[in-house]
Amino acid sequence: MIVRAAVTQVGSALSSTDSAPGPLFDTPATLARVEDCCRRARAGGAQLIVLPEALLGGYPKGLSFGAVVGSRSDEGRELFRRYFDSAITVPGPEIQALAALSRELELHIVLGVIERDGGTLYCTGLLFTPERGLHTRHRKLMPTASERLLWGMGDGSTMQVADTSLGRIGMAICWENYMPLYRQHLYRQGVQIWCAPTVDMREIWQTSMRHIAYEGRCFVLSACQELAKSDWPEELRDAGGEIAGRSLIVSPRGELLAGPAEGATLAFADLDMDEIARGKFDLDVAGHYDRPDVFELRVRAASRHD
């Protein structure tokens, strides 16, 4: 079976400020960008699109939120309030719109969002399928460095690989890809299409994506945001950071099928799913190349509240 896939690099829309600043990121405008990317991907024949980490809700790269060890400023608290207001709820109106879009276009959609649940934000990946709407929600297990000030930690209840009409789809968000035990957990579930929404555009990230594809004998689709200094409101431009894309698609033997892409764009590749079995011939780290008599992996696949 051939699956035509697309990765996109696009940035979140930022809100302009006025006398009563609203949300930090313009979520309705970003949702319109998501829809445009999905429609262009489907016009290019894609059956699956992967969009970047924290696209809906925004990734506040470079912002300190007025925090140092032992102290937070009032200005930083207000900026967090604006960021909090940019987040979406699951379920919610954005989820309904994306489910309808997936169904209309007959397109599988993987998208990074900032999810608001009670008083906590989570960096979350969502999978929509034409048949089921919202199929899978995965919360990032370990926010990286200063992200921990903004986002809560996920738990074992959202680490599932989804069985879809295109194959078995799994997600690892940004630096989760550097967690060996999480990778092995996805391998053991038979992941075939590994989706990696991210904001990491470094060369070492490209190497890591190729390593995971080779190690797991799966296709890896990495989608990174594209955000320039000029996209930030003037009062945040000095602090706000750039994100420079470089999305890519990798084969089960570590070969680049598309990318690293430059600029705000879509990159396409045809995934020959038979390549997975060909790759497993000499390396299956969850099967014949595993040593369960020597190594044991135990996973608590439950909510922290259970």
Results as ranks from 00 to 15, higher is better:
176 E>L: 03
208 S>D: 05
8 T>R: 03
233 P>F: 05
175 W>Q: 11
93 P>G: 12
13 A>E: 08
75 E>P: 08
123 C>N: 15
263 G>M: 01
279 G>H: 03
11 G>E: 04
43 A>I: 04
118 G>D: 05
16 S>T: 15
120 T>H: 06
261 A>N: 06
11 G>M: 04
165 S>Q: 09
54 A>L: 13
15 S>A: 15
60 P>T: 08
102 S>D: 09
2 I>W: 10
281 F>A: 15
258 A>P: 00
87 A>K: 07
40 R>Q: 15
223 A>N: 04
285 V>L: 09
85 D>Q: 15
63 L>P: 07
44 G>L: 08
9 Q>R: 08
158 T>V: 05
118 G>W: 02
252 P>A: 04
145 A>F: 14
192 Q>T: 05
239 A>I: 02
202 R>K: 13
203 E>P: 07
237 R>D: 06
132 R>F: 04
283 L>G: 03
209 M>I: 02
101 L>G: 08
49 I>Q: 02
76 G>W: 03
145 A>C: 13
128 F>P: 07
50 V>M: 07
95 I>H: 14
304 R>W: 04
179 M>R: 14
13 A>I: 10
293 D>Q: 13
93 P>N: 11
167 G>Q: 04
250 V>S: 00
152 G>D: 07
98 L>W: 02
45 G>P: 15
194 W>C: 01
47 Q>A: 13
6 A>R: 00
179 M>C: 10
237 R>C: 01
58 G>M: 12
240 G>D: 13
167 G>V: 05
10 V>S: 09
233 P>N: 12
118 G>R: 01
156 G>H: 09
143 P>D: 09
61 K>N: 14
244 A>H: 04
68 V>Q: 12
212 I>D: 01
21 P>K: 10
23 P>C: 11
263 G>R: 00
299 V>D: 07
134 L>Y: 01
88 I>Q: 02
45 G>R: 03
82 R>G: 14
214 Y>F: 12
263 G>T: 03
132 R>V: 06
76 G>A: 02
236 L>T: 07
193 I>G: 00
152 G>A: 09
297 L>S: 08
305 H>D: 12
241 G>R: 01
